[in-house]
Every structure is written in C-alpha cells, then in structure tokens.
Design a protein around this nucleic acid. Structure first.
Length: 466
RNA sequence: UGCUCCAUAGUUCAACUGGCAGAACGCGCGGCUGUUAACCGCGAAGUUGUAGGUUCAAAUCCUACUGGGGCAGCCA
C-alpha cells in the first residue's frame, strides 16, 4: 500500500515494504549510488531515497530521473547512517511515471522569484514556498469551518450571481447571456437587460452579507465562506479581482459580541494552524518573514486593544511624525494611519470602533444621542500590522425608519431593497456581523507579501491565464 | 487609475560617465565510497521586452508601446 510521506516522517521508524509516490525534488548522483528526494505534497520535507546499482535497469532509470519527474518507489524504510534525516528509503523497485526533461523543465532546485513563479502557476505548487502556502491555506479553511461549526453557526451558501447592486462595495462584474455581437438596445439606446437571461442586469457577488442577514433572521447564527468578485482596477499586493470572504452574521448580537467573536475567531485560526502546520510556519519564519511565529504567539495570547475612531484620531494627532494625508475627525483613516496604529503604536492587531456615519455603509447601526455633526455608527475594523484592515464589521441598523433614511441619503433605490427592509418590518432584532478576506488572513499568517502568492490561481487586472 | 522603479543566458543578477555582453545557479559531459537545494573540473547557452529615433558607436541616451514590481486610491 502507498504511504503519504508526512505519515512516514511523523512515525520516523524503520519499516518493511513501504511504497511512496511523488515528484523528484533533487537528484544527487554518486559514483556508487544515487540519492533522490521525493515530495508528494504532504509535507515540506521530502523523503530521501537511496538507489543502488543492483536495482533492475539502474543506469537507464537513473537517467530518466531529474527534478520534476514523477516516481513510485518501493523498498525498506531504514535508519539513516548520515545526518540530515532520521529515516530514508532503501529502494528495491522504482517506476518512473513521467520524465521531466531538465533542458526545458522551468523549475530548478534553487530559489525562484515569486514573479517568475506566477508565470508558471501550473507548476509553482511544486515549490517549497507554494507547497507551504497551500497547506497553510487549507488548514486555515478547515479551522474556519471548525470554529463556526463548534459554535453552532450554519454555513450558508449565498449566491455567486446576484442582481443586487445596491451594496456599494465597489465595481461589479456583469454576468450576461446576451449576444455581445448583437446587443439589444432600449429606445434610449441603452443595453436592454430585460432581454437578458434573468430579465434584468446581473452581477458577480461582491459580498454575501445581505443574504447572510436574511438567513440569520431564521437561524440566529450563520456564516458564509465563498468567492466574491470586484472589478476594481486595483494593482496592489493586497487586492484580487476574485477572492474568498468569510462573513458571520449573528442575530441578538451587538457590537461587543461581534468584536468578541472576531477576536476569538482570529485566535482560534492561528492556534489551529500552528498545530496543523508547524513545519510550514517554521519555514515561513525562517525564509519569508522572521516575525511570523512571534506574531502568531502574540495574537493567541494577548487581547486586542479596542479604541473608538475618535480616540484613534486624537492618537494620530498626537503622533510624533508626519503623515502624508491629513488627520481630522470626519476623514477616513488612510493606510499610513492604520499602519502607524497597528505597527508602531500598539504593535499588534487593534480594533477601531464607532466611525463617522458619513464614511461608512448604509446598513450600519447609528449610535443614539449624538449631535448632527458628530454622528457615528457601530462599526468596527480590526487593523493588523503589515496588511492593514483584516476584518470589517458592524452592528446592523435594525430599525426600519433610520435604515430607510440612510438608504435614501446614500442615494440608493429604496424600492429595490424592499426585501432587506422587510427584515426590519417583521420580527426585527439587533444583529451584527463582520467580513474577513480569506487571502489576507493567509497573508497575515504566512508573512507572504503579495496576495497573488497565497491563492492558487490569482485573478487580477490582466491576469487570468491559469 | 495615479506616482515611481524595472525589463540583459533557462533562473537570479553584473556590465563605472555611450566604447569587445560577464558571473553564479541551473543544464550537459567527466570525476568523487553517504550526499543534504552536495562537492571538484570542463562545456554549451544572448537579435540586451517590442517598435522607432539620436550617434562614428546604444544594454546604456530619447519617444511610444507591452509586461512586471513597489507605494497610493478603491476595499477585504
């Protein structure tokens, strides 16, 4: 039976009749015999196999082996006489499934730049760093579900195609079945979407939040975890056109409960991934960013400071440094401000609450009893060192009339949100939730600086080849 | 989208102020009794991103285009 390499390495004991399958990472040919390192993706470290000349067809098989070749090797696991590994595979039989011509195979044993690897995204998963990234990404996803399932949250599959463009969360991708060579037009010479597949204009979703609110009004606690899309022309190391978002939504919950959940959530994810992928995180700490492990420990053990927007502004005003953008009550915090707070002042993630209502979304709960020029909403952002805003959430406006007012003020069509308003008409309840970019979480955890390197097939402007 | 930097061997980078395009790794061949992204020797490998321009002479200077990085905006 075939073993996964991670299992053999974890047990670390000699054994008979072992078979592994995988891809050759490196071949070290000696006069008398040959070493190869085989990796099957189950762990960062591969298994060293020793091929000796008494193997059938030795000379020929050795020639076919090179970095990238796929093999199956059977033999005995023995204690290694040399330093570097506890056990190794003494091969008695080897099958080369597929060769990888070393003259043309683009991956070499040594390090490549991430920019180069993005051009060969179909092969980059076979590298150390990408292997570690995608194992951590998987462990993260697993931890997300575990966290919510343990707390009785229902995973809700919100639609990927949505006709709702009222959320105002950025540019949308239009989904159409219209014949682009012959687009039907209205009398006003505009595209006639009434003839389109859905009888109206449809988009790829930018967020499952409004739908999650619907489901929370029946199941109390729910979460979404799926792809979302933004057609923004954003060229940064923190943005993708297609990314995965996690959005819990809780009925009978206020902003404090929301913050408590978000903080417990981040702590749980870091803890789980540390347990699931210790070697991979050690690798990131060594090769990518030497603060990764300290950051993880810091997240798990320390409380996140919580300050209001108003307090944040006064801290920034007192800061002993110059900012490019002005700081004043009413203006949104810029990247440089968020980074100053998280990286220099607090040196850990912090939560900023109660932002001016003018700069926040219509669905956020208005604070009571404030003067007109100082109105704030029950919003909260978690700001993390290096990547900035990692969580954005709020208590939602559960009162019908203030919500209608806010929709109008935002210039959005009240009639199209009739179903959202119905939630306030029938059995409304204080509720809250937050959204979290999954890739940013993986970035935060691994120290990878470019978001395109924490998703297998990144979608960004001018990039959709793989 | 704005600002800015960059594009040279398969890869990562050199090439001073415009003057013969180089190194390391990878690859090939040879050597090596246990290697560790091995080591030692030899070798092949280039229309300097594309299109124009200036010049006796352009990788180097100018223009446009294409692609990429960083920062910013939008946000997650």
């Amino acid at each position: 039976m075939t073993s996964r390499i991670i299992d053999l390495l974890r047990v670390g004991q000699p054994a008979q009749n072992v078979t592994v399958q995988g891809w050759v990472r490196t071949k070290r040919e000696q006069k008398e015999f040959c070493f190869i390192e085989v990796n099957d993706g189950s762990s960062l470290v591969g298994l060293q196999a020793i091929l000796s000349p008494d193997l059938p067809d030795y000379a020929n098989q050795i020639k076919r082996l090179s970095t990238g070749a796929s093999v199956e090797i059977s033999g005995s696991l023995v204690e290694s006489p040399a330093k570097g590994q506890r056990i190794e595979l003494q091969a008695s039989q080897i099958t080369v499934y597929g060769e990888a011509n070393p003259e043309t195979y683009p991956l070499q044993k040594k390090r490549h730049s991430f920019e180069f690897l993005r051009e060969i995204a179909h092969l980059r998963a076979r590298t150390n760093t990408m292997g570690a990234v995608f194992r951590v990404r998987n462990a993260c996803a697993n931890a997300v579900h575990q966290f919510f399932q343990d707390r009785g949250f229902l995973w809700m599959h919100t639609p990927i195609i949505s006709a709702n463009d009222c959320e105002g969360a950025g540019e949308l991708f239009t989904v159409t079945g219209l014949d682009l060579k012959n687009i039907p037009k209205t009398a006003a010479a505009e595209i006639d979407y009434s003839q389109d597949f859905f009888g109206r204009r449809a988009f790829l979703t930018v967020s499952g939040q409004l739908e999650a609110e619907i489901m929370a009004m029946a199941f109390t606690n729910v979460y979404t975890f799926g792809p979302t899309f933004r057609a923004e022309n954003s060229n940064t190391s923190r943005h993708l056109a297609e990314f995965w978002m996690i959005e819990p939504e809780m009925a009978f919950c206020n902003l404090d409960g929301n913050m408590d959940l978000a903080e417990a959530f981040l702590k749980h994810i870091f803890k789980s991934v540390l347990e699931a992928c210790p070697e991979d995180l050690e690798f990131f700490n060594q090769r990518i960013d030497n603060t990764v492990l300290a950051t993880a420990e810091n997240i798990i053990s320390s409380d996140f400071p919580r300050i209001t927007y108003t307090e944040a502004v006064s801290l920034l005003e007192k800061a002993d440094r110059k900012f490019e953008f002005p700081v004043a009550w009413g203006l949104d915090l810029q990247s440089e401000h968020e980074r100053y707070l998280a990286e220099e002042l607090f040196k850990k993630p912090l939560i900023v609450t109660d932002y001016p209502s003018a700069i926040k979304a219509f669905y956020m709960r208005q604070n009571d009893g404030e003067p007109d020029d100082r109105k704030t909403v029950r919003a909260m952002d978690i700001l993390a060192p290096k990547i900035g805003e990692i969580v954005g959430g709020s208590q939602r406006e559960e009162r019908l009339e203030p919500l209608e007012q806010r929709i109008q003020q935002a210039g959005l069509p009240v009639e199209e949100l009739w179903w959202y308003l119905d939630l306030r008409r029938y059995g409304t309840v204080p509720h809250a939730g937050f959204g979290l970019g999954f890739e940013r979480l993986v970035q935060f955890m691994t120290g990878m600086t470019n978001i395109r390197d924490v998703i297998p097939f990144p979608r960004s402007p001018l990039n959709a080849e793989f």
